[in-house]
């Protein structure tokens, strides 16, 4: 296994590893077996494991999700891939009414070990229906687990953990994270239990970034050094189960919490995390809080408006600076070349 790998390679490796050591694992979804192989995340798997275990599907998200449930009940461990999370909306009946509830409503007699991989799109005109985050919808439902890994290491660990889990897990990927490179887990047989990670230590503010916004939060932390603000950045990685302990510990130290969602803020993961932390702290220490996320509109494809739609390292730094100082400081950092967003070049 290479020392450094891309996020794409991490997902591909995790799938290949688990399919090789567990014959129950099957992989399917629209285009998993086409020449583009879901941006390479399923490359080579058809050749190695055959069309019975790796197959493309009709455009029928509800039935394919229902079939995943049935396959799981039959003893398999299905992985169902969606090239955009927006398409999962066509499968909500099977995910929420069936996959999430099968264990509980049958008194534990049945369970559904299935994995749903779904990708958030961004930039180059993804527009209204290829850009949504949507993961808070799944966090709302008892019986579903949700993770949003932002590094190759966590992508591999999350996918392996998800396949080995006895319950349905939704893995939220992000198209722009596919460019990330980094180390992969060395001991894939003994992965840590799902928990959050402090990705950059700091003292003045706790900055929680979800999915691709984790990358933006690390950029914001670098910008905030200009103002002498030391941000502690946390990646929750798993949203259900949610590791509030790590975030609470940080907030008790910093006294300020900003959560940057990779979706809209209303009823978002930020709302849940901030409420959860404040419920625990109950005024023991004073805490300032801030939610950031998509502008409360439909995502526009035209570049100027799209730029305004998303938080980025500079706007996060601006808003966090205001949060720490308790008012409008009137500072936005100048863009630095080494902290520039990778601009995706189409076509897809």
């Amino acid at each position: 296994m290479p020392e450094e790998a891309t996020y794409v390679e991490a997902i591909r490796s995790a799938t290949e590893l688990e399919m090789a050591q567990d014959p129950r694992v099957v992989l399917f979804g629209l285009d998993v077996d086409d020449p583009k192989c879901i941006q390479g995340t399923t490359a080579g798997l058809l050749d190695r494991f055959g069309s019975e275990r790796v197959f493309g599907t009709p455009l029928a998200e509800e039935a394919m999700t229902g079939a995943a449930v049935g396959m799981a009940l039959s003893g398999l461990r299905p992985i169902h891939v969606h090239i955009r999370i927006d398409f999962v909306l066509l499968a909500m009946n099977q995910l929420i009414n069936v996959a999430a509830k099968t264990r509980y409503m049958h008194g534990g007699k049945l369970h559904v070990p299935m994995v749903v991989r779904a990708m958030i799109g961004k930039s180059w005109g993804q527009g209204a229906q290829h850009s949504q985050g949507l993961y808070p919808l799944f966090m709302h439902i008892p019986g579903l687990k949700v993770c949003a890994p932002s590094t190759p290491y966590d992508a591999m660990a999350c996918l392996l953990t998800a396949i080995r889990d006895d319950d349905p897990v939704i893995i939220v990927e992000h198209r722009l994270l596919y460019y990330q490179t980094g180390p992969l887990p060395e001991d894939t047989d003994n992965l840590p239990a799902p928990s959050a990670r402090v990705t950059r230590p700091g003292n003045d503010v706790t900055l929680v970034g979800i999915s691709h916004q984790q990358e933006e939060c690390l950029r914001a932390a670098a910008y905030l050094e200009e103002k002498g603000i030391s941000a502690e950045v946390i990646d929750p990685i798993w949203l259900t189960p949610l590791d509030l302990d790590t975030i609470e510990t940080s907030v008790r130290k910093t006294g300020a919490l900003c959560v940057v969602d990779n979706t809209w803020t209303t009823c978002g993961a930020g709302s849940e995390i901030i409420a959860g932390v404040l419920e625990r702290i109950q005024g023991d220490v004073p805490v300032r809080v801030k939610r950031l996320g998509y502008a409360p509109v439909t995502c526009p494809p035209t570049p100027g408006l799209e730029e305004l739609f998303y938080p980025n390292g500079r706007t996060i730094a601006r808003d966090v600076c205001d949060l720490v100082h308790g008012g409008n400081v009137g500072w936005t950092p100048e863009e630095r070349a080494n902290l520039r967003e990778i601009t995706f070049k189409g076509p897809f």
């Binding site: 099957v26 019975e52 275990r53 509800e62 039935a63 394919m64 999700t65 229902g66 079939a67 995943a68 449930v69 049935g70 396959m71 799981a72 009940l73 039959s74 003893g75 398999l76 299905p78 009946n93 099977q94 009414n97 069936v98």
Partner: peptide, 16 residues
Amino acid sequence: TPLPNAVGYALGAKIQ
């Protein structure tokens, strides 16, 4: 709702 579950189970049994 049970229709695709039945199909998935049947396919799963066949694969196994």
